[in-house]
Computed example of a mutant assay.
Amino acid sequence: MTDPRSYRPSKDALKDRVILITGASDGIGKAVAIAAAAHGAQVVLHGRNVRKLEGVYDTIVASGGPRPSILPLDFEKAGPEEYEKLVAALDQEFGRLDGLLHNASMLGERAPIEHHDVAKWMRTMHVNVNAPFILTRSCLPLLKRSPDPVILFTSSGVVSNPRAFWGSYLVSKWASDGLMHMLAQELENQPAMRVNSINPGGVKTNMRLQAYPAEDRSKLPEPEAITAAYLFLLGPDSRGVQGQTINAQ
């Protein structure tokens, strides 16, 4: 298999692929969206902040990429009707979905279990586990219409190296990886469908700052530096890669 970390995509590696990226308004999601569009993808930008999404939109258009779409949705508050409207909009505009990147997530509290706020725990689990489940379930009919569909979850180093005080974030990432493995096996009768997870590693993002406020950020890579692995897994060059967690660094 090609090493995803050193993957060098061709200019049109993602040409005409419709890819929905959650959490695309900032950080890794923004960087992947811009990189995917630069390689020909028709990107669908999800996030809560419309102003930030419009900024990503403008960046892609100014660089000559395919004109993206914007789908604002707050996973904390969204109910079944909002997901149905999202899928209906995708169906009407594109008729299919070639890639789904679950990038949006919430850090939650880093504290001993006995001190955790129950409501905050529930919100983190909902955004990091329930929302990707609901969105995947809702988008599966559109993904099955693609000749080469991809579902990509976001993992974390805390999955392979669990540690104290990481609370709902750690538990949610274990659950997300479990969902990935389960779904990969459930879709074995769909040989074109690929389901994997990607671990971005330490990157200079706002969430990383929340988790490690005293860290020397000058030693962290920018989000743009790790997009190669994402482009590999979201594109046709990753055919045959299934049910794996891939490190972006």
Rank of each mutant, 00 (worst) to 15 (best):
F153R: 05
T154V: 02
D58C: 04
Y230A: 08
K219I: 08
E81A: 14
E93S: 15
K30H: 11
D16R: 11
I34P: 10
G202K: 15
A248W: 01
R145V: 00
H102W: 03
F133E: 01
M207G: 14
Y83V: 07
G29A: 00
D216T: 07
S10V: 06
R8F: 04
R137E: 11
L183N: 06
F94D: 00
F232G: 01
R8P: 08
E114R: 15
D12M: 08
E188Q: 15
L86R: 05
T59C: 05
G79P: 12
I34A: 13
L135F: 02
K85I: 09
L14I: 09
V150G: 13
Q249R: 14
P223L: 03
R123K: 13
G40E: 02
V195F: 04
P68I: 01
A62W: 02
A131H: 10
R194W: 05
T227G: 00
E93A: 15
M193A: 05
P68S: 08
P9T: 09
D216F: 08
D98R: 11
S69N: 05
G47F: 01
A228Q: 13
I70S: 04
Q185I: 10
Y230W: 12
V61A: 08
A37M: 00
G23V: 08
H115Q: 15
N128M: 12
E222S: 14
G235R: 02
A41D: 07
W121V: 15
R217P: 01
I19A: 06
A41P: 06
R217S: 11
L101T: 09
T154G: 04
W121Y: 15
H102E: 03
M207Q: 14
V241F: 04
S155R: 00
L179C: 03
I198Y: 00
L140D: 08
K219D: 08
E215H: 03
L97G: 04
E186W: 05
F165I: 11
N130E: 15
V150R: 15
D58F: 04
R110H: 15
V129C: 14
G201D: 07
H181P: 04
R110V: 15
E215A: 06
H39C: 05
L231Y: 02
K173N: 03
A164I: 06
S10P: 05
K204G: 03
W174E: 15
A184R: 09
W166T: 14
V61W: 03
A88I: 09
S63T: 10
G29W: 00
G40N: 03
L234Y: 05
A229T: 07
